[in-house]
Design a binder for these strands. Structure first.
Lengths: 197, 197
DNA sequence: AAGTTAATCGGAATCGATTCCGCTTGCAAG
DNA sequence: CTTGCAAGCGGAATCGATTCCGATTAACTT
């Protein structure tokens, strides 16, 4: 899933082209929105052939993920090894709240690109970033709520953040990001508590 | 979202073509799988022009939804007005369990078509069947667990059943449908219980 | 510096979905 | 039984993504 590094060593012209393509794509998204991100246009704006573009990024959604990638690794670094409350050092419940809040913010922030990337290749997010999130979150949940099925609970919490659903709730249903954060936090809080009855 | 009925009255030739197209599409899916469902092929097999196909079903995912539609309305009728435990008559917690189990089964049963339909138009499922499910489930949850945020909890439970995620878990992760049913059931059971502490 | 090779290039060709539009036809009013 | 025309039809044209492949070129060897 790592879209930036490479097996051996990228040839200098290839690296230069990668940079030109990403710059051109970012500019197009900034000026014309995600819909304007046509492969032929990106290639033309970057001054390369479409073949080059496909060699580097695989397909349209690969390009979208590459555009997302920088913030992605930033986020992953933050919750894996950054300072508390997101990173290690805080209690699991605190980290879970922080993680969910940050995940909502991050998704909302890049909603259009995620929408496009997930639409073109819904499977790509799985096996990729999703699995990393899931591994992290289910570990924390197992730690904080030994009685719950951490694996499924993590899926439930993360699936609620899928770009298409989030877009629907935020844009068509008037739900706020804060309400979703609160709802997920409550859901986690309630789940796995020792039952009364 | 109703893909079968129509505003005024469908002309007889149009109705005949609709039937021919659906029959041809179903046969193609049966023999060549969902990947083989190319618009031009369906049109040719049905003996109509592609324009006709688009007039009737809007686009590829519309055709997929139409193929799903029959079982869809069957399912909706069952949980809205059918016999218990799915329909009215049983206690809310029982109906919720039954609904989640049935929803898992139904999704698994038509996983390929749903995968295609959602991939082509992830938004279509929202505003359509998803909203119906959500309305139903959140009503039951509100009834059974007055302390929980039924709206968000319903999203969490339903989002876990999204075709791409379910396909990933079932096919790539070795998770069974039964485990997911159990996990969702537990999640509902735990959520909204009066807290101990 | 010249040779060798595998990685890259570029852009034409291909492929499938979707749109367009002039022609046809069901059907209801006169 | 004509006539009017909105709904419907077919399939060519368009559009954008993706694939192909012969020409180039970076990078290592001798």
């Amino acid at each position: 899933m790592n879209l930036v590094t490479n097996p051996r060593q990228e040839r200098v012209d290839a690296a230069r082209n990668r940079a030109k393509i990403l710059a051109a794509a970012a500019e197009i998204v900034a000026s014309h929105g995600v819909e304007g991100l046509a492969m032929a246009d990106v290639a033309a704006a970057a001054g390369v052939g479409v073949g080059t573009l496909y060699r580097r990024f695989g397909d349209r959604s690969g390009l979208a993920y590459a555009l997302i990638d920088e913030r992605e690794r930033e986020f992953q670094a933050a919750f894996i090894a950054g300072p508390p409350p997101l990173g290690p050092g805080a209690d699991a419940p605190v980290r879970i709240r922080a993680f969910l809040n940050a995940a909502v913010d991050r998704t909302v922030e890049q909603l259009d690109l995620l929408l496009m990337a997930e639409t073109a290749a819904p499977l790509a997010r799985f096996g990729g970033a999703y699995d990393a999130y899931h591994a992290h979150l289910s570990m924390l949940i197992a730690q904080a709520r030994p009685d719950a099925d951490a694996y499924v609970l993590a899926d439930a919490l993360l699936a609620t953040l899928a770009a298409p659903l989030l877009a629907h709730r935020l844009r068509d249903c008037g739900v706020t990001a804060d309400r979703i954060k609160a709802g997920l936090g409550d859901l986690f809080n309630l789940a796995g508590q020792r039952r009364v009855q």
